[in-house]
C-alpha cells in the first residue's frame, strides 16, 4: 500500500515534466494548427542558452526571463524564415520540415555544447526544504508543478481575454476569414510560434534539473508529452496538463504492477493509439464537427 502511494507520488512528479512540455505542444497546435516535432529540441537548445547565461553570471530569474525572450525570437524566426514558406504545402511536407528542424537543433546543441550530461541549477532547491512526502517529490518538482500551473493560467487568460490571443486562435482556425476581418494572419502565426518556443524554453529549464541537460534530453520526454497532450485533448491546455500528470501516474503504476518496466514506453504508445481510436479529440478536447 505504501509502495502504491509512493509510485503514485513519484508518477505525479514525473507527470509534471510531461505536463510542462504537453502544454507547449498544445500552444503551438492552438496558435498554428501544426504539431511541432522539433518542440523538444528547440526547448533543449534554449535550455543550453539559459545555462550559458547563468554561467556568465546572471541571476537565475534574469537568465530565465532572457531565455524566454530569446526563445520567442527564435520561434518567430523559424516561422518567418521557414514555416511561412510552407503555408500552402501539404501536411506531409510540413511534417518533413519540422523533423528536419528536430535534427538541426539536436545537431546544433551537440556541436555547440557537447554531448556529456550537464547539471542545470534549480531555483527551488537549496532553501533547506527536504522535498515533500519524504523525498518522494523533490522541492524542484513542487516548484515545477507550480510554474506549470501558473503558465497554464496565464495562457488561458491570454487566449480568452487578450486581443492578440483571440486573433491567434482565429488565425489558426480560419486564416481566410481572419484576414477579411483585418487580422494580420502572418504576424499572429509568427507570434504563435514565438509563444510556443518560449513555453518550450520554460519547460526545458524546468525539466533539465531533473533529467540533466544533454542534447537528447527531450527525446524521451516528448513522446510521453504527446501521449499526455492527446489524452487530455490537443486543443485544451488544461486537459493537456491533466493528461501529462495522468500519463506519469499510469506509466509508473503500469510499469510497477502491470506490464513491467520493459513495456512502460509501449504503454504510452498504447494510450496514444487508444485515444486516437476511441476519442480522437481527447478526454477534454472539443469535438469539431465540420460541414462538408
Amino acid at each position: 500500500m505504501v509502495g502504491l502511494l509512493h509510485q503514485t507520488l513519484s508518477g505525479l512528479a514525473t507527470g509534471g515534466v510531461y505536463a510542462s512540455l504537453a502544454l507547449a505542444l498544445v500552444m503551438v497546435h492552438r496558435s498554428t494548427h501544426h504539431l511541432n516535432f522539433a518542440q523538444g529540441e528547440m526547448a533543449t537548445f534554449s535550455t543550453y542558452i539559459a545555462l550559458m547565461l547563468i554561467q556568465a553570471g546572471l541571476p537565475y530569474w534574469v537568465a530565465f526571463a532572457l531565455t524566454v525572450v530569446i526563445a520567442f525570437a527564435l520561434g518567430v524566426a523559424v516561422e518567418r524564415l521557414l514555416m511561412q514558406r510552407m503555408a500552402r504545402a501539404s501536411p506531409l511536407a510540413v511534417v518533413g520540415v519540422v523533423i528536419g528542424l528536430l535534427l538541426l537543433f539536436n545537431g546544433l546543441s551537440g556541436w555547440l555544447f557537447g554531448f556529456t550530461i550537464k547539471q542545470f541549477p534549480s531555483p527551488f532547491e537549496g532553501n533547506g526544504g527536504g522535498g515533500a512526502f519524504g523525498g518522494m517529490v523533490s522541492d524542484h518538482e513542487v516548484g515545477m508543478t507550480a510554474v506549470t500551473i501558473a503558465v497554464l493560467i496565464a495562457m488561458s487568460l491570454f487566449f480568452r481575454m487578450t486581443k492578440l490571443g483571440l486573433a491567434m486562435r482565429a488565425a489558426a482556425l480560419n486564416p481566410e476569414s481572419s484576414r477579411l476581418l483585418g487580422i494580420r494572419v502572418g504576424a499572429t502565426l509568427a507570434a504563435g510560434w514565438g509563444v510556443a518556443a518560449g513555453l518550450g524554453a520554460i519547460a526545458g529549464m524546468m525539466v533539465a534539473p531533473i533529467v540533466f541537460l544533454d542534447p537528447n534530453m527531450m527525446a524521451g520526454v516528448l513522446l510521453y508529452a504527446f501521449a499526455g497532450a492527446l489524452l487530455g485533448g490537443i486543443d485544451n491546455p488544461a486537459g493537456a496538463v491533466a493528461g501529462g500528470f495522468a500519463v506519469g501516474v499510469i506509466e509508473n503504476l503500469g510499469g510497477a504492477y502491470l506490464v513491467g518496466t520493459e513495456l512502460k514506453l509501449t504503454l504510452a504508445l498504447v494510450i496514444i493509439a487508444t485515444v486516437l481510436v476511441v476519442r480522437p479529440a481527447g478526454l477534454f478536447g472539443h469535438v469539431t464537427v465540420r460541414r462538408v
Binding site: G3, V17, M136, G220, T261
Partner: peptide
Amino acid sequence: VSYETTDPTIDSQAVSLQA
C-alpha cells in the same frame, strides 16, 4: 528492474527497488 534509454527518469524504478 530495467529501464530503457528512452525513459526520461528512473524515479519509479528507484521507488520499486526501495519498496
